[in-house]
């Protein structure tokens, strides 16, 4: 139901809306769509979950959230989804993904906690582990140190023929 123009539009909006009074009209100029068409297409993309969120994207580190922990667990495959969904419901969790295990890296569930200091993040993690009964699983905590790069993906550069799925 979505066409190439939708994917192109999605790429442009992922990179950022212009800061001008009629940003959707401005975006439309690049893809030969009217303002109304841009808005209609974006609404449809949002309704179908192809836009997870539309709004201000903050640099959390600049705003004082410098303690950023990625926690990985080795969870049995048959309960990873249930636990992933439960972890996601926790207010201080900012990402929660399942990824494949590798021989040298046997972890399959990833979650991020962003906080202002390390002690707060560790306390939040302890609460999360109790709440979701995660203590029994092997885990690693990886705090971030330097941020070398953080920005949205450059979809429109490398995705002239975007593929869905």
């Amino acid at each position: 139901m979505f066409d190439a123009l939708d994917w192109q539009l999605l790429g442009l909006v992922a990179e950022g809306l212009p800061l001008c009074p009629r940003p959707y009209a401005q975006i439309g100029l690049g893809v030969s769509l009217t303002e109304a068409e841009v808005i209609a297409r974006l609404s449809a993309l949002q309704q179908h979950g192809l836009i997870k969120r539309l709004g201000i994207i903050v640099h959390h580190r600049q705003l004082g959230y410098r303690a950023n922990a990625m926690i990985v667990w080795d969870i049995p495959d048959d309960c990873v989804k249930k636990l992933g969904l439960k972890i996601s419901r926790c207010a201080f969790v900012t990402l929660c993904y399942q990824r494949p295990r590798l021989t040298e890296w046997p972890y399959n569930l990833y979650c991020m906690i962003h906080g202002k200091d390390r002690d707060t993040v560790l306390a939040q993690l302890a609460a999360l582990e109790t709440e979701c009964a995660l203590e029994q699983f092997d885990k690693q905590i990886l705090f971030s140190r330097r941020c070398f790069k953080q920005r949205g993906a450059l979809y429109s550069q490398s995705h002239q023929q975007a593929v869905h799925g």
């Binding site: 999605l10 992922a14 800061l19 192809l50 969120r53 709004g55 995705h159």
Partner: peptide, 18 residues
């Protein structure tokens, strides 16, 4: 001041490209 990255859409991973 680098508090805001952009006004943009967050797209679920792997919807566009890999």
């Amino acid at each position: 001041r680098r508090f805001v990255s952009r006004i943009g859409a967050v797209i679920p991973p792997n919807q566009i490209g890999v």
